[in-house]
């Protein structure tokens, strides 16, 4: 293939890889927003905690030297991180957000900011600032497809994200819990009267959103380095993804994640350095909001008087 084409294909592949991670985290933002109309600013840091959980699980499992097949190690690391992160998120929701459900809406947002800063610095204080990487859980191979390098990790990241997205879409559209979630986001006053256990559904939403973030965290941690403050930038970018796609809309979060992935990868291609990526991403966001305030897939909210 000619050089420009391979570059384009290569960068698109990289963009899909980064975009998948953003999409997985954006799902958590958008689900919580859909059900509580609350921006859960701690979500980026919950993602960070999940990568550390995955790191310790993987290191422990590999340290046992039981010669388990790689798939078993990968899946058990994933499961451990998902369960641990979901538990953490439910605890945070019960302790920090639930008492504030009747309070002014923004008190909960400030609490979320506080929880986020706490998680960052607690991790920093306990684990330390050294960057780490999750040890490879499956053979890392770089395949050369006529000039385009595809690593196994890229295939896994993109594949797993698409599978998770399909599973989530099915849960939200086809199960009773999903139906309850959609009902609560539709109307919070009437739905409890129909016998929907609102508190349990909200906890389930937090658990589901964080478990998905944990999937993103493990995949991210194998490809990049972990540090206690990484949740800030990735969290903000995932949040923008959710807004670009239309916050509250699950498919929108996925679309937004990939758009942001493309922005991140293609900014250094066209502009002198990657320091412009924040500028490009946020200018795009501002422009989009001026012309389409509800995001790409969001529906306008009709305000009743």
């Amino acid at each position: 293939m000619p050089q420009p084409v391979t570059t384009l294909v290569q960068q698109t592949l990289n963009a899909l890889q980064v975009g998948s991670v953003y999409a997985l985290i954006a799902l958590g933002y958008t689900m919580v927003y859909g059900i509580l109309t609350m921006i859960n600013f701690a979500h980026g840091d919950i993602f960070m905690v999940s990568t550390y959980l995955g790191f310790f699980a993987a290191a422990w499992l590999l340290g046992l030297a039981l010669n388990m097949p790689p798939l078993v190690i990968f899946l058990s690391t994933l499961l451990f991180a998902m369960v641990g992160t979901a538990t953490l998120a439910v605890i945070i929701e019960r302790v920090a957000y639930k008492p504030l459900r009747q309070a002014p809406r923004l008190s909960a947002v400030i609490t979320a900011l506080g929880v986020g800063i706490f998680l960052e610095n607690f991790t920093l204080a306990v684990i330390g600032p050294e960057p780490r990487t999750i040890p490879p859980l499956f053979p890392l191979v770089n395949l050369n497809l006529s000039g385009v390098f595809v690593s196994t990790i890229q295939i896994v990241i993109i594949g797993v994200s698409v599978i998770v997205m399909i599973i989530l879409d099915t849960i939200v559209r086809r199960t009773m819990t999903g139906m309850a979630m959609r009902a609560i986001s539709f109307d919070k006053t009437i739905v409890p009267l129909m016998g929907v256990p609102v508190d349990r559904i909200i906890s389930a939403t937090f658990a589901l959103g964080s478990a998905i973030a944990a999937v993103g965290g493990i995949l991210y941690g194998m490809a990049y380095q972990l540090d206690p403050y990484m949740g800030i930038r990735i969290g903000w970018w995932a949040f923008i993804s959710a807004v670009v796609g239309g916050i509250g809309n699950i498919r929108g979060a996925f679309v937004g994640g990939f758009i942001l992935g493309f922005v991140e990868i293609f900014t250094p291609v066209f502009l002198p350095s990657s320091t412009y990526r924040d500028f490009v991403a946020f200018s795009l966001l501002l422009l989009l909001l001026v012309f389409r305030p509800t995001g790409i897939l969001g529906r306008p909210i009709v305000q009743k008087v």
Binding site: V95, A96, P99, L100, A103, P104, S107, I110, T111, G114, V115, I117, F118, E120, N121, F122, L124, A125
Partner: peptide
């Protein structure tokens, strides 16, 4: 006997506690 980092652990914790007990 703790390092400087704990300042940013205790501070947010106090904030969250305050918000829970005095949301306004």
């Amino acid at each position: 006997g703790l390092s400087e980092v704990w300042r940013w652990v205790v501070g947010p914790l106090l904030l969250v506690t305050l918000m829970i007990f005095r949301p306004r």
